[in-house]
Structure formats: C-alpha cells, structure tokens
C-alpha cells in the first residue's frame, strides 16, 4: 500500500518536473491574462515622468545606450530584427514598437528596465545602466525607427 503511494507521488513529481521544463509558447488566453496583470498589477512606477527632454539629442543618447546590450535580444530597432532566437523564447521577445509595450507609461518602462520581468527572459538592469541611461532608453523606445531600417546587430552578422 505504502509502496503504491510512493510510486504515485514519485510519478506525479516527475510529471510536474517534465511539464515545468517544457517551454511551449503561451496561448492567447494566458498572454491576455499576463498582459493585463503586468500592466495593472505587477509593473509599478506608473506615475513617474521621464525627466529628460524629448528632443533629437535625447533620442540619440537613448539609441546609443540601447546599443550597449539591449540589442542582443531586441535588435537595433527594438523590433527583434536579426535576433535569431526572438521567436523561440517563451514568451517570445516582444516587438517594443507593439501596442502591448507602448501602452506602458514611461515610469513603467523605466521600472521594467530596472527590475526586469519575471519569468520572461527580460533581466533587470538597475546599476548595470545608470538612471540617466535608462530614461534615455525610454525616450528611444517612444521614437523607434521603422522595423529593419537599422539592419542587424553586428554580433549576429559574422
């Protein structure tokens, strides 16, 4: 009797581990629920305004900061151009020009870059990038160029 119980518990644990390791793309329902939860609950700092001036120099600075290492996952254009694994992650790397990202407030975008989004692949960059750089990246995100217009990141072209 006890042996059967241990067998069932063991089988369940193995099944849970196997399911947990599976990185299937999230369904539409799961995506919608998570998107709502992130926008409304999990991602803070909704009210903070970007202290940087929204001008050409500010955007250029943000573009430069973005190329430090954001490009590895998001491409030069923030729309995954040339990123070979963007569609194979779970969830896939989103286009930063898309409505789901652009509907965050500036403060929320800063929060996401600061702390990352768990359990997606987005890491937090607080202390790795300065506040000044992160705000400039937020500025760049609001002025992304057309998809593909900047080519592919150098790291993927040779």
């Amino acid at each position: 009797m006890l042996r059967t119980f241990y067998f069932i518990v063991g089988a369940l644990l193995i099944a849970i581990l196997l399911v947990g390791c599976k990185a299937a793309p999230p369904g539409k329902g799961e995506t919608a629920v998570m998107s709502w939860a992130k926008h409304k609950v999990f991602v803070g700092n909704k009210a903070q305004k970007n202290p940087l001036k929204d001008d050409a120099a500010g955007v250029a600075g943000g573009k430069e900061a973005f190329t430090h290492y954001c490009v590895a996952c998001h491409g030069l254009d923030g729309q995954n151009t040339g990123v070979p694994f963007a569609d194979r992650m779970s969830p896939p790397v989103p286009s930063l020009a898309g409505k789901d990202i652009q509907s965050y407030t500036d403060g929320q975008l800063k929060w996401i870059i600061d702390y990352g989004i768990w359990p997606s692949g987005m890491p937090g960059s607080k202390k790795t990038l300065s506040d000044d750089e992160i705000w400039s990246i937020v500025l760049y995100l609001r002025h992304l160029p057309p998809a593909g217009s900047l080519g592919e990141p150098e790291m993927y072209t040779h």
Binding site: Y69, S125, K126, K127, T128, L129, S130, D131, D132, E133
Partner: peptide, 15 residues
C-alpha cells in the same frame, strides 16, 4: 556625471 561608454556590470554606478 555618469560613465557614458558601457564598461560592464557596474557601469551604471560609475559616477
């Protein structure tokens, strides 16, 4: 002033 050339994991705190 901040370091303006990305130099590694502590770059954001280099002031």
């Amino acid at each position: 002033g901040h370091c303006s050339v990305f130099c590694g994991s502590g770059h954001g705190e280099m002031t």
